[in-house]
Design a binder for these strands. Structure first.
Length: 291
RNA sequence: GGCCCGAUAGCUCAGUUGGUAGAGCAGCGGAUUGAAAAUCCGCGUGUCCCUGGUUCGAAUCCGGGUCGGGCCA
């Protein structure tokens, strides 16, 4: 077992983070660590926050949840919106409360940006505004790039200008604050460095063939285990929820646009691609030790 | 058995009048602080079915095979 995790036992229990790509076995490891460290599990998965999405999001089963206290699973209605900031504000008090009781928070999940907010705090930036975003979405990308370049050339130079999301967000910050996104972001970059040194967590690493096999097995189990019925039952969802891998694919199966085999393969491919992005993300989090 | 069509990347396919091949998807690598299971960027990975021939040169033209599909018996 990992010796590093026991160092702080007895005093103020530090949170243990368990990260890794989807289907790598985070939930199982979390249970194991919770038993070993007298811990409680806190969700760090953007989609397992939602109620009614348990199967598609591969949330821990009722049986698993009965073994150890689990927090922040199924706490949002499918119609509710969420983002990294709102997640952080939900999770911080939960974690503090667990620590107050002398238990170890085992923060478990694969949503890199959500975890990053939790561990390193928010930059001094405004939250997104749906109305402004809708306005920006209606404009051509070139137009947004021009305006960003005018308002904040430094930020424009370091932004991937083909990425509408990134351009739009940078511009949004400038418009909302009247300041330059680049200077606000620089402040956060510097404050963030010392934080990493005080964190501890594990990132699960598996070989590609093994991970891909686990993904295929899990997709099969989901489809046979009620995922189709689950999606059929979700009549009203937020645009957030609609992005869940499996949601769109099962919807098109339900209306007869695809067959079962194609649906399964599309879910597998999307999941593999997501897992790869997660690996890239966590590889950059040097404070995580590889497990 | 006869005739016809097809065989090119992991998959589906494109390939001009002969000049050793390229798209989509998959895959691989990367970026990424309030949409992140999102969004975006980069990379072609090849016994062109086999074999003999024509040609300076064949994925491409000709002969013979093999496999798959279709039609006629």
């Amino acid at each position: 077992m990992n010796s590093k995790s026991c160092e702080t036992a007895g005093t103020d229990p530090k949170a243990l983070y368990i990260c890794g790509p989807t289907a790598s076995g985070k939930s199982a490891l979390a249970l194991e660590m919770a038993r070993e460290l007298d811990g409680e599990i806190v969700n760090a998965d953007a989609f397992q926050l939602y109620r009614g999405l348990e199967i598609v999001s591969a949330a821990p089963s009722p049986d698993e949840r009965s073994q150890v206290p689990h927090h922040l699973y199924g706490v949002l209605a499918p119609t509710e919106a969420a983002d990294a900031g709102s997640y952080m504000r939900m999770a911080k008090p939960v974690i503090a409360e667990i620590q107050r009781r002398g238990k170890t928070p085992i923060v478990t999940g694969g949503s890199g940006l959500y975890l990053k907010f939790l561990t390193h705090g928010p930059a001094p930036l405004p939250a997104g505004e749906p109305e402004l975003r809708a306005q920006l979405d209606a404009r051509p990308l070139d137009d947004l790039v021009d305006e960003l370049t005018r308002l904040d050339p430094v930020e424009a130079a370091r932004t991937a200008l083909q990425n509408r999301r990134f351009v739009s967000r940078a511009l949004e910050i400038c418009l909302l604050t009247g300041k330059q996104a680049s200077t606000l972001r620089d402040q956060w970059e510097t404050q963030t460095r010392e934080i990493s040194a005080s964190l501890h967590g594990l990132v699960i690493q598996r070989s590609r063939p093994e991970l891909h096999a686990r993904i295929a097995a899990r997709t099969r189990a989901m489809l046979e285990g009620g995922a189709i019925e689950e999606v059929a039952a979700l009549t009203e969802v937020s645009p957030n929820c609609e992005k869940a891998i499996g949601f769109r694919e099962i919807r098109s199966l339900l209306v007869g646009e695809t067959d079962r085999g194609t649906c399964e393969e599309l879910i597998n491919a999307a999941t593999r691609q997501y897992a790869k992005r997660q690996e890239t993300w966590f590889r950059r989090e040097k404070w995580l030790s590889v497990r």
